[in-house]
Design a binder for these strands. Structure first.
Lengths: 249, 249
DNA sequence: CGCCCATTTGACAGCTTTCAAATCGCGTGG
DNA sequence: CCACGCGATTTGAAAGCTGTCAAATGGGCG
């Protein structure tokens, strides 16, 4: 493959980890029309309630999905890293049920929903891969429901740190001992169903116990093994393809 | 269509609401091999962590998906009614990240995962429909994350009652004013991240305020409009195809 | 009639929130 | 190079929602 530098190559690489594509599948993916967009930190990538016309691939930076509830509170639904498909539901659903915002300055590639639908009609293998991606997305959602619903603040926070550690490691953006995660304590709170103040106190507890240090946007995991225990974490729900699950985590 | 009495017809009807199938698509779906299974109340339909070999269609009864966390607590992830596809992730993912249990005696049709994969490869329109179903599933998960993460016990409970009311109504299993929902107060608690005791007190508050009466497995909505308000409920996230959203809810 | 499970209640503990106010870190401008 | 300003972090005290633990009550089924 000579197209490693193609903008959509990360998407191809990610999807083809799960399903082998033949040459025509690959060609069809790389021939998708797209436009490249830069979004600055804090801006919307997709607004809630608008009708989605595009599906997006996160090329660089960190983004998150959110919902605003009646009293104005924000729930962060998932965090996304470079290579993740954002707003895949925009390819089929009529209205966006949530918003997507940029946590850092990001770059995205926008692909028209119509092009996705046509691609899937003509190349069923690509459809399977996109479906797979959506299934994993759902699995992560499920773990978040359980995390927010059943675990204490401390366990929730550890769990989220583990998830981000593993995913950043997988994406090559860090190690299990140190990675960059530019979320504020308030962001953590909104992701975990806690207040920023309580995240602060909980984080301090983890630090006192020698599990984690967080300084600005750097996260230092002092004891991965104990953090995994404290976070009731098992990476199965991420449905990683390699054997990270048993070997290193 | 003469095959209204076919066991898989409900699945065909549901999926074709979203995407028009041609005759060969329909035929292919109805020709799927399946086996019919009865599961009694409380038993597992799919066990967590086992490798899924089948995808299931719920033919009758009520089922729910759950996760058990480290300390043994149970989080209910979603409730399923007749016509729902269960364990669709079993078609592609290697291990089941959650369990499925029967809330009432249920009947399911089991379709081999391999058959699903092959069907999707040959009939891309069916693949689109299944993908769509999975996307809606994810949307419901997201609402649950927000529900459990950001709302008070009272609002959470109202929200869940609204969701079930709309879905039972949609499925023809009840009206918006009265429906059967055989969940115990403990079940509600496990779905909402609350204790059964607190659900009891909250339910009593709703009753006192003239919103809802629950007696055994019957739910009587005394004031749908106020319940919707109290539950911060909007049905958009269910991505219903008809205009229930604006007309009657 | 009696058992079993679900519901109901009460008292109390406790985790988390709320509300401020103080402190810190760092980019910007003087 | 230092001062200013703003957002993020930190802290304290007090309130509150929800959980815990038990025990009593209720209702349906064998």
């Amino acid at each position: 493959m000579a197209q490693f530098d193609h903008v959509l190559a990360p998407m191809l690489r990610k999807l083809s980890k799960w399903f082998p594509f033949d040459d025509r599948d690959q060609e069809a993916i790389l021939n998708l029309s797209y436009s490249r967009q830069a979004v600055v930190r804090g801006d919307y990538i997709v607004r809630e309630s608008e009708e989605p016309t595009h599906t997006r691939l996160l090329l660089s930076g960190v983004a998150y999905r959110q919902k605003i509830v009646g009293d104005g509170a924000r729930q962060i639904l998932s965090i996304h890293l470079a290579g993740d498909l954002l707003d895949l539901q925009g390819a089929l659903l009529r209205t966006s049920d949530h918003g997507v915002k940029a946590l850092t300055d990001v770059e995205v590639a926008e692909v028209p929903s119509e092009a996705i639908r046509q691609l899937v009609s003509e190349r069923p293998a690509v459809g399977l891969a996109l479906w797979y991606d959506t299934l994993v997305d759902g699995s992560v959602h499920r773990e978040w429901i359980a995390n927010v619903g059943q675990r204490t603040a401390r366990v929730r926070l550890c769990h989220l740190l583990c998830e981000m550690g593993v995913r950043l490691y997988e994406t090559g953006l860090g190690t299990l001992n140190r990675f960059e995660l530019p979320m504020t304590q308030q962001d953590f709170g909104d992701a975990l169903g806690l207040t920023g103040v309580h995240v602060n106190r909980t984080l301090k507890g983890l630090s006192k116990d020698g599990l984690v240090e967080k300084r600005r946007s750097s996260v230092y995991i002092k004891d991965w093994k104990r953090l995994v225990q404290a976070g009731d974490f098992s990476p199965h729900y991420l449905h990683l393809q390699d054997d990270l699950q048993t070997s290193r985590v």
